[in-house]
Design a protein around this nucleic acid. Structure first.
Lengths: 353, 353
DNA sequence: CTTAGCACTCAAAGGCGTTGAGTGCTAACG
DNA sequence: CGTTAGCACTCAACGCCTTTGAGTGCTAAG
């Protein structure tokens, strides 16, 4: 059967309305919409066709229609009118992003929170690196008797520190020596490059501070390994409860439990060779429990050999247009922010609903 | 009327059972309990008395009884058999705490998560300082052209750093000078002690690095002020959904929304002159929405002029014995951990359910 | 003082008819 | 030939009623 323009229009109207109301939509409701020039009977015929073609579904005989996964797919791919952010929304998002952050893991959490706030849905935020980081420089700073601060400057411009307490006293000169040795031997090395032999060499050159080497190196390896891992955060799970389809607590709970870092760990893999915004409708993606759920994810580059991903999880009928608009905007803002760390440039918003 | 031993025993049995089942308990159920030597009729009489005395309530005529707030209060204060943590639970908590943390805000979040996990309820974690912190030492470390790292060692042994990028090149000597000046003039000062005059003095002494002063001082003041604020985190809100009384989504949602940092900001004030574990039953505490909820909080000292608080939020019928046991254990573990930062000593657990 | 017995109460659960939104089909219309 | 009015049909949702059974208070006997 042919998918005529009129059929498309009807389908779009149905999805639009369903997104708003979360209830099966009937022929009459569509026929009464402002720019729909046909009667309910005609719409009914079209709806019957669309159902036959697999774009709509009927919960039961005497109910209206709801979009099928295929229907959503078509909607997302072709039919969706893009949603422009209103001035107000733009402003809010910009303001939020202004509060700058430094450490990646913190940032990921913060971003997840912001996205969740902006969409009123549970949100996921991921930052992953293409390659691992190395230490660019070690600094050891004496901090009173028996303790010192280890500062690691990493190749990706992150800075990590740790206060280390030790039972013995350390002279400043010894620390200086140790720092010099570390900088000479262990910089620019991936964690697996720090071999026992190398460690042995450092120990022997370190003189009085040799006893500090293990704890310093341990922390360093830990940190580097942590940098390799992708950072992921989930926020706003409770917002799922505002959606009518999750009034059923058991359902809500089932989904909530699969909204944690572990369960979603395969998401980055799925998005691997995607770019821009992806809409994963219902059964398309692997996470078991998320059957009647959709995930909208946007991937973006943030330089330094890293890319970020933000996304939201919601009912399949969620307002894709709105959500994708906001996500894209967010992604763009974040990209810009990373390009110029301390002065996020924000795109101009357009006012319109 | 006299509160006889038998009445107490009946009351305890009722609360115990109600805690387990979340359903009104009837006379028969109590009479059938293993060490209850009286018939249901006798129990009924006692229950009638307890109701008259205000310790029990009846949702409707032909239903069993549920404890009133006064009943819970009596239970918590006198009747509760203390719950010893099983080996297994002890082990889990210890293991979790072993993973050491440094920054207070991170730690607070982590602790909230752990407590929530351990109790299967939403948890709150607070760390607050009696007095503000000051900077013990400034360090400026060159990190490539046009950027450097500012490291602040605070009086409470926290270390904070920030990578600062600037358009102009800075010589290492200039940084050294600036650091010396900062250390000479701005250490041991509360944020409000950093006056414009002082700032002016620093600027003039700083030579080539004068342009860096504002950004450095800004960050410093920010950090100090942040240290003053009490850190609070809430975790595991979703766990509320496992409780039968929150099967009603609206109810659950209402409570969830008041489970954020802002809404709970007056909690520390309420706990101010309490020490040890406090059980706030139902109407006793101020947070509006939390009417039919209880909050169990434990306050503990963690040295460095700080104290911590951990607590959980749950239905009034929650298993106080279990919850308070776990909280106390946690609090003790945390205290010890802070006393000896890198080697948390854990109390011995006793196996028993 | 304790307990068996009994009449009473009332929320919860199940059965049942009504309602109304929505459908598919057909026949008439432009 | 596409469009539309009309009509019979379907079925979840709703409200109403009855039944059920857990639980109570009271009384009288042990």
């Amino acid at each position: 059967m042919e998918l005529t323009e009129r059929k498309k229009k009807v389908l779009r109207s149905i999805v639009d309305l369903y997104i708003r109301t979360a209830e099966p939509v009937g022929s009459k409701a569509i026929a009464e919409m402002p720019d729909m020039k046909y009667s309910s009977a005609t719409i009914r015929n079209e709806m019957a066709d669309l159902t036959a073609m697999g774009y709509l579904e009927q919960p039961h005989t005497s109910a209206g229609r709801i979009p099928s996964p295929a229907g959503y797919r078509l909607y997302v791919d072709e039919l969706m009118l893009d949603y422009r952010l209103s001035m107000d929304e733009t402003q809010k998002i910009s303001d939020a992003i202004e509060s700058k952050m430094q450490q990646v893991d913190r940032m990921v959490e913060k971003v997840a929170k912001l996205v969740s706030q902006a969409t009123d849905l549970p949100a996921i935020s991921v930052a992953s690196r293409h390659g691992g980081a190395t230490v660019k420089r070690f600094e050891l700073i004496l901090a009173g008797s028996g303790s010192f601060i280890l500062v690691l400057m990493l190749s990706n411009d992150e800075v990590v520190n740790k206060l280390i307490k030790l039972p013995l006293d350390i002279a400043e000169a010894d620390l200086k020596l140790l720092a010099a040795v570390l900088n000479a031997t262990l910089t620019e090395l991936p964690p697996e490059g720090i071999t026992p032999e190398l460690l042995d060499r450092v120990m022997r050159s370190a003189g009085a501070a040799a006893s500090l080497v293990p704890v310093v190196v341990d922390f360093t390896c830990d940190t580097l390994r942590k940098q390799e891992r992708t950072n992921m955060a989930v926020a706003g799970q409770m917002r799922l409860l505002t959606q009518p389809e999750y009034r059923d607590i058991d359902k809500a709970q089932r989904i909530m439990t699969s909204l944690d870092e572990e369960s979603l760990s395969n998401l980055p893999a799925i998005m691997q060779n995607a770019n821009g915004t992806q809409v994963l409708v219902g059964p398309e993606h692997v996470a078991q429990e998320l059957k009647d759920t959709s995930v909208v994810m946007t991937k973006f580059d943030i330089g330094d050999g890293m890319h970020g991903m933000i996304g939201v999880v919601g009912p399949t009928r969620m307002d894709y247009a709105k959500v994708t608009a906001r996500l894209s905007y967010f992604a763009e803002s974040l990209s810009k922010m990373f390009a110029k760390p301390d002065k996020p440039q924000l795109p101009e918003g357009d006012k319109e609903n």
